[in-house]
Simulated scan of single mutants.
Amino acid sequence: MSDKCDLCLLGLIILSSLLTGISGVDDVHEFISSGEKVRLSCNNALSDCKSTIWIYSSFSHSYSNHSETIELITLGIKKKDTERHERLSLESDCSLNIKNVTEEDYGLYICQQYVNGQKQGTDAHVFLHVLHVSSSQTEISPGRSVTLSCQLYSYSGFSCDDWVSYKGFDLLWVNQTGVDLKRDSRYQILSSHQYHCIITLTTTLLNEDNNREWRCQLTHRNQLQTSVTHTVKYSAQADSTTAVNPSLYRVIVSIVEIAVFAAPTVILLQIIHARRAGRKDSKHPEEIKMPAILQ
């Protein structure tokens, strides 16, 4: 019963926060790539983080069928019963650090201040948006088609149409030198801006694509916000069938060269030997001198 009450209270806190200006001018938006570390600022912190509470909310109807509301930090102390526990840390200014960010970390983070059970000031809202690249292919080798999907995971209150049409955000795939891959007919680039911000890259792999990098970039009015790099890695078996070790290659070339130059000499010696043998067999008996002792 106590757990249910705590959950209800936490829900009321979240609802109150949402109704008191979730889209206010003081809201902060952080864009980060999966695998990196992010710092979420608490701009309403008091002098002592012992009054700080960090709450995470991800009620989204776009990416999952359930909502999630979790208290991560309670009066300056990390909650140990959360999946993020090992990846969280609190700085001296009460900012929340998250290392090794995953696509599951996107959502709304709320920083609140409580002193003697009384809420102090207004809530600080930080929206975390995570850029993530995935591939459905398990076997990567030359001649196979590969599709990479780059998605921006955002809080449900923001549609991709809003980000692209009104706020000037965009997703694109570029090569190692930063050139947009839409310019290359070898790649098929498809974008979806209706509900989810997704851009896919499809191509047929070549031998020289091993260790090649493709990068998905999130830009805002042509200014880079964050990016995710995907490196093509062929399996050891694929490598051995498509490439020859340089040292082995040089040995093979040397053997072939020796064989090419030596072959005519061997053939000539065989011809000379055969002719000599033929001449000896054709001599008449009288032409063969008898040893002096027998004459």
Rank of each mutant, 00 (worst) to 15 (best):
Ala124Phe: 03
Thr52Asp: 04
Ser89Gln: 07
Gly21Thr: 03
Glu36Arg: 08
His85Arg: 11
Glu139Gln: 13
Gln225Lys: 14
Gly11Glu: 06
Tyr63Asp: 04
Phe31Trp: 01
Val28His: 08
Tyr195Arg: 15
Pro142Gly: 06
Ser149Leu: 08
Leu108Gln: 01
Glu104Val: 06
Trp163Glu: 12
Thr20Asn: 12
Glu208Phe: 13
Gly117Ile: 06
Gly168Asn: 03
Gly143Phe: 00
Tyr63Ser: 04
Ala243Ser: 15
Leu72Gln: 04
Val179Cys: 03
Val266Glu: 02
Cys150His: 05
Leu190Gly: 02
Ser227Thr: 02
Tyr109Ile: 00
Ile53Pro: 00
Ser17Thr: 08
Gln270Met: 12
Ser254Cys: 12
Asp81Ser: 11
Tyr234Lys: 00
Gly178Trp: 03
Met1His: 09
Ser134Ile: 10
Lys182Tyr: 03
Asp26Gln: 13
Ile73Pro: 05
Ile288Leu: 14
Leu131Asn: 05
Gln112Val: 05
Asp81Cys: 06
Val253Met: 11
Gly117Val: 02
Asn100Glu: 13
His132Ser: 12
Ser67Gly: 12
Ser16Lys: 08
His284Glu: 13
Asn44Thr: 14
Lys182Gln: 10
Tyr234Thr: 02
Tyr56Glu: 00
Trp163Ala: 15
Asp161Cys: 14
Tyr109Phe: 14
Gln237Ile: 13
Arg250His: 11
Ser58Asn: 11
Pro246Asn: 01
His129Trp: 07
Asn207Met: 10
Ser159Gly: 07
Ile13Gln: 11
Glu91Trp: 01
Ile98Leu: 15
Glu208Ile: 14
